[in-house]
Design a binder for these strands. Structure first.
Length: 1167
RNA sequence: GCCCGGGUGGUGGAAUCGGUAGACACGAGGGACUUAAAAUCCCUUGAACGCAAGUUCGUGCGGGUUCAAGUCCCGCCCCGGGCACCA
């Protein structure tokens, strides 16, 4: 360096500010979306900013995406790189709660700070098109999407068990529950049954799965999605169920292994299964069964987690199922290892071939029947494979396994011409007892005579191989028999057998190592572990017409049979559940639904069932009057006459009630009079039927002993009091009734009722019960009773559940009202329910007073479509403009963290498919290419505030500048794997950048000329390739090599060479260090901006060196290197290699077997 | 338990199709410049043996295929992430 010409200091702060200002002023990154010739949508995952500011992990992603985007821009694409933020949601809300501020204020501050930080990292964001989910301009369209879903039947409400954190007093989404515990406070979550809104994503399960076959995504991400969707192919099979001697009903199961049907030895129902109650009369141990089922259902997540390992269950005594394939009667159990929500909530258990069934059967001593034999066909690498041209002979084979209890060692044998050691193998004649056969073989071959039988396999193994000595294929049915040596007495071995084999005693641990074939390993494993449960494919045995088939063939055949016999059919099940989008929180888009009672009344279809009493009928008393009133109000009324009302039979009445109840549902009502009331209670106590309300008029529901039946007989000589008494004395299951009546029970009685003592009503054991004590109406046997009929009509019609009316598209958005107090209360309703002004509204259809839905939607809904909005932010008539969307979507490159690869990607794919089905777009996969990057850690540990090892991007940018930070982040590891942040690493990078800065001004071109600039071509080529496949760390390494080369030769370059080096330097560094590159570009007098330049071209010919280094190996080991011309002939190369001095040492006096030449790479001499 | 990643020097990490293992860095050691330090520059740096040329070993462990294995196959171990009684 010449004296006095010291290069100016690298003042990154000044340079970076300067260029950021210029970019903004020139609007360089505000792409003209309509005019773009080569649109390239460069998308990063929607930031979910924390109020604490940008995380260095965020910088890692965004600058990585930007480096790729800038490279694409230099390749001539019109790169659109939008930014926005996903600000709604529980995380922001919780943070605001924690610091005791209002979420609204916090969000404003967060947004400002976040955008400021993002402005400093040097990305080419288009700041004219930001999107924030909590702005009404945006969530208006989120709500609009909800409405389209609703209108298509894809959004619906249902009661569902949701995660409830007792400490946070709120509902949690599945992803906030980690191993049964609340993500925030670690309390164990409960399950609460609440009405929730759902999106019917399951309808798209097949499509979501199938498209994975062709979209350009990393395999691991696709696998994750496949597992989440969880498709399993199998069959639904119907089993007849018998109890109390008759065939009563059917039980349908789902199985993925219909081929194992012959091995089903019991059935298992989920505790919630309806058959548990349906068959209650027949279940001999119903109390026990019920106790078990109820306990299992009410188990908390914590208990479930604790009990997971142990299998529990109760048999339904008196109930059995009939296996359709062989007519076997098999027991039915209820157990909580069967889940109500999957398949049909019931299984056929095949303990021999399912791990869970196996454990269960072992515990409860249920038969285990093997129907699949593990199959081991010989492979070329071990035994000899079957020869098609030879006959096949079946052979029963025994493996005699002998242990010497004194030494703990096992007896093994080795044969000539036979690899490894084995157990004592022998054949058994067809009728021969397997134990005797094994005993005989052991004694014949080893001489040991006193063997104590321990156990034999429950399980046979099949193997096929070609037996050379017999010139035939053998098909072995193998069983093992396990003995212990009683003593070491030996008999003499036959002369002819002597010398053919040797015997050994081998330690238990080493037995496995000695065994040559997989079938031995398998046998040994089952023997030592006791787990004779084969879940893999194999050959069918003990299975009638399936015998001998392989698993796949057997599946096909049994499916055909099931369909032919009409007892089953192919069926596909998914693990994917519908997407719960309700949140009982404040900070989200209100769900745009209005609940209207008037509309409900207009379309009132409430069904009402009248149940008359003893000696009554469907048209008796005040029934006709009530019927008229109810029908006028739109109700559908059933008023049947029960079988023989004058001598009522319990069973007959139950069956008759069922006929009507089967037509009724959750919004319907029963009106019972006298004994009819009692009948209703009995019915509801015996089924899972759900009803809205029950009216019990002059109810006959009390317990028996209080009644004086003899007195009644005397007072009422014409009546069949015997029959009445019998009916009356059945016990009512109040708990079950409570579950059935969703809203309330109204009991109406008169104090002067001659038949029912008012004391009876104290026995009504219900939760929500309204007692109406009236006077002077006796037993309500009167043709007209306006007081009663008006009361009931008003109560039914006035209490119709409102219907969901969608807010009209043009009334959107339903704005989130400002609320001083936005905290959740834990009542199961969101904070919006407290805001009367918000709740009270008018129905958009009928104009009547109505109430707004108070749930808000899941933030995942917001982020499932944001990329549609970016290109269309200026359009206010639709969520996204069709033309714009056609031009810019699907997204060309989507980059984001792997942690979101399941839910977010799946949801946005689903929403895109719905858009397609709505005719809004003509593609159904939103992302052409997805790339999941890894996470960065700090010195090997996860960054977290509590550990105090968080890297603050602001600090880094202040200390080292954005360019150096960007460069270091690119260098610290493979983008897909993530990397480890080291402070010393940034320091090193900082030194490198300073060096580069100095070098750039030192390249003055005052030398004589280097003559060969092929390094430039190589760098341009390789760095370009690396950037294309997002291999940033190697690209940085190449750039460093290039820099080192330039530094070494800085004094040699002539003027022209130096100029070329400087120009390339500005260009190739620009995707990673955009500010610095702009500065370089300006220094060399470049026009325009460096980011508008093309990626440099390289000359292929310059890259190929005229001379190459050829590696010379002897037996694959490096011995020498020779320099040869690039187009050296094979002969010449081999000759040169053999002549090499060092090679001579290794090949002299040895025979050269072979010389291998790999073109342009190496010569390998085999001696 | 199941699924998906991963395991390479003192450290972060390269090695794209089975073909020179350790690119590029950090750190460390030695040296130069300096009164000194910082900064900068130069050299060494997988291990063992050797004055050296060089040789042997070496990519979690044990086998195998191959002229040749970090890379492919079989069986394990460990770490990280996800799912978890899904029939």
């Amino acid at each position: 360096m010449k004296k006095g010409k010291i290069a100016p200091r690298y003042d990154f702060a000044k340079i970076e500010k300067k260029w950021q200002k210029i970019w903004q002023e020139k609007k360089l990154f505000e792409i003209k979306l309509d005019g773009a010739k080569k649109p390239f949508y460069n998308l990063m995952m929607f930031p979910y900013p924390s109020a604490e500011g940008l995380h260095v992990g965020g910088v890692y992603t965004y600058t990585g995406v930007d480096t790729f985007g800038r490279f694409k821009r230099m390749q001539g694409y019109d790169v659109f790189e939008p930014i926005g933020l996903d600000g709604f949601g529980i995380h922001s809300e919780n943070y605001a709660m924690k610091i005791g501020e209002h979420i609204d204020e916090v969000s404003k501050r967060t947004e400002k700070n976040f955008y400021r930080q993002l402005g400093s990292i040097g990305n080419m964001f288009d700041w004219s098109r930001t999107v924030e989910t909590y702005k009404p301009e945006y969530y208006r369209w989120t709500q609009w999407i909800f409405l389209q879903m609703f209108k298509k039947g894809l959004a619906y409400q249902k009661k569902a068990k949701v995660n409830w954190c007792p400490s946070c007093k709120t509902v949690l989404s599945d992803e906030q529950v980690i191993q049964g515990q609340c993500e925030r406070c670690d309390s164990f979550v409960d399950k609460r049954e609440l009405k929730q809104w759902f999106f019917r994503i399951t309808k798209y399960a097949d499509r979501l799965l199938k498209n994975l076959d062709w979209i350009d995504w990393p395999e691991d991400v696709k696998t994750n999605q496949r597992n989440w969707i969880g498709r399993s192919e199998g069959a639904n099979i119907k089993f007849k169920v018998e109890y109390t001697g008759e065939e009563k009903s059917e039980l349908e199961v789902f199985t993925t292994r219909p081929d194992t049907l012959f091995g089903a030895t019991y059935m298992v129902l989920a505790p919630e299964h309806e058959l548990v109650n349906k068959a209650r009369e027949a279940i001999e141990n119903f109390d026990e069964v019920e106790r078990y089922a109820k306990k299992a259902i009410s188990k908390s997540e914590q208990e479930r987690k604790n009990d997971e390992k142990t299998k529990t269950g109760v048999e339904l005594k008196g109930v059995s199922a009939i296996n359709p394939v062989n007519g076997d009667k098999i027991p039915v159990w209820v157990a909580d290892y069967v889940l109500a929500g999957y398949g049909t909530g019931a299984i056929m258990a095949v303990p021999a071939h399912d791990q869970r069934d196996f454990e269960f059967a072992n515990k409860f001593g249920i038969e285990i029947r093997q129907v699949v034999a593990p199959y081991f066909p010989a492979k070329k690498t071990s035994d000899l494979p079957v020869r098609e041209d030879r006959k096949t002979v079946k052979r029963n084979v025994v493996y005699g396994v002998v242990k010497n209890p004194k030494t703990g060692k096992f007896l093994m044998i080795s044969w000539k011409d036979y690899p490894g050691k084995s157990f004592i193998i022998g054949g058994a004649k067809d009728n021969e007892d397997i134990i005797n056969a094994a005993r005989r073989e052991v004694t014949e071959e080893t001489g040991y005579a006193n063997l104590k039988f321990v156990k034999k396999s429950q399980f046979e193994i099949h193997a096929s191989y070609f037996a050379v000595h017999k010139d035939e294929n053998r098909y072995g049915v193998i069983n093992w028999v396990y003995f212990e040596l009683a003593d070491e007495t030996k008999k003499e071995i036959k002369k002819e057998d002597e010398g053919k084999h040797k015997i050994f005693w081998v330690k238990e641990k080493e037995v496995d190592k000695e065994l040559p074939y997989t079938n031995y390993h398998y046998a040994w494993k089952t023997l030592t572990s006791g787990k004779e449960c084969a879940t893999d494919n194999g050959i069918m045995i003990n299975s009638g017409f399936l015998d001998g088939l392989k698993t796949d063939e057997a599946k096909t055949k049994i499916l055909k049979w099931l369909e032919k016999e009409k007892v089953g059919k192919k069926s596909i099940d998914f693990k994917l559940r519908d997407w719960c989008v309700s949140r009982q929180r404040y900070w989200g888009p209100p769900i745009p639904i209005v609940w209207c009672k008037e509309c409900a009344k207009k379309e009132n279809k409430t069904k009402v069932l009248f149940l008359h009493g003893f000696e009554g009928n469907g048209e008796c008393n005040w029934f006709p009057e009530l019927k008229k009133k109810l029908e006028k109000a739109g109700c559908e009324v059933f008023s049947p006459t029960m079988p023989s009302p004058e001598s009522p039979k319990f069973e007959e009445w139950m069956n008759e009630i069922k006929v009507y109840m089967d037509k009724m549902g959750e919004n319907d009502v029963i009106v019972g009079h006298s004994l009819g009331s009692g009948a209703a209670m009995h019915y509801l106590g015996r089924t899972n039927q759900k009803l809205k309300k029950v009216f019990l008029v002059a109810a006959a529901v009390g317990d028996g002993p209080r009644r004086d039946w003899d007195a009644l007989r005397k007072a009422w000589p014409t009546a069949d009091v015997d029959s009445l008494e019998k009916f009356w004395k059945h016990k009512i299951d109040w708990k079950s009734v409570n579950k059935s009546v969703l809203k309330e029970t109204r009991v109406i009685f008169s104090k002067d009722d001659p038949y029912i003592d008012p004391e009876h009503y104290k026995l009504v054991d219900l939760d929500d019960v309204v007692l109406e004590k009236w006077d002077g109406l006796k037993h309500f046997i009167t043709a007209s009773c306006p007081k009663l009929t008006d009361y009931i009509t008003e109560n039914i019609v006035g209490d119709i559940s409102p219907v969901a009316v969608p807010v009209p598209d043009e009334s959107l958005p339903v704005e989130l009202p400002p609320m001083e107090n936005f905290l959740p209360e834990g009542t199961g309703k969101g904070p919006l329910a407290r805001n009367e002004e918000f709740v009270k509204t008018t129905c958009p259809v009928c104009g009547a007073e109505a109430e707004r839905e108070t749930d808000v939607s899941d933030p995942f809904v917001d982020s499932s479509w944001y990329f549609f909005r970016y290109p269309s932010t200026e359009f206010n008539d639709n969520a996204f403009d069709p033309e714009r969307t056609k031009k810019w979507l699907p997204v060309d490159s989507y980059i984001g963290g792997k942690e979101h690869t399941v839910l977010h990607l799946l949801y946005s794919r689903f929403v895109t498919m719905v858009f397609k089905d709505l005719g809004l777009i003509d593609f159904e996969e939103p992302y052409k290419r997805f790339f999941g990057h890894g996470l960065i850690t700090k010195e090997g540990a996860k960054m977290s505030k509590s550990k105090g090892n968080v890297v603050n991007p602001d600090d880094m940018i202040e200390k080292y500048g954005a360019d150096t930070t960007r460069m270091y982040l690119r260098f610290l590891g493979d983008f897909s794997q993530g990397g480890d942040w080291r402070d010393s690493g940034v320091e090193g990078m900082s030194k490198f950048v300073k060096k580069l800065w100095t070098l750039f001004s030192e390249l003055k071109g005052e030398g004589v000329g280097l003559g060969n600039l092929s390094m430039i071509d190589k760098t341009v080529k390789v760095v370009g390739e690396d950037l294309e496949r997002l291999s940033f760390n190697t690209a940085v390494a190449r750039l460093m090599e290039f820099t080192n080369w330039a530094k070494e030769n800085k004094a040699v370059f002539n003027k022209e060479e130096a100029a070329q080096v400087r120009k390339v330097m500005a260009l190739v560094f620009s995707p990673m260090m955009p500010h610095l590159a702009e500065e370089f570009w300006e220094k060399i007098g470049g026009k325009d901006s460096v980011c508008n330049q093309s990626w440099p071209k390289y000359n292929k010919e310059n890259i190929i060196d005229s001379e190459i280094e050829l590696v010379v190996q002897v037996n694959g080991k490096l011995r020498d290197k020779v320099v040869v011309s690039k187009d050296v002939k094979e002969e010449e190369a081999k000759k040169l290699a053999l002549e090499s001095e060092n090679v001579q040492k290794f090949i002299e006096q040895k025979e050269i077997k072979k010389v291998i030449y790999v073109i342009g790479k190496l010569v390998n001499i085999v001696v």
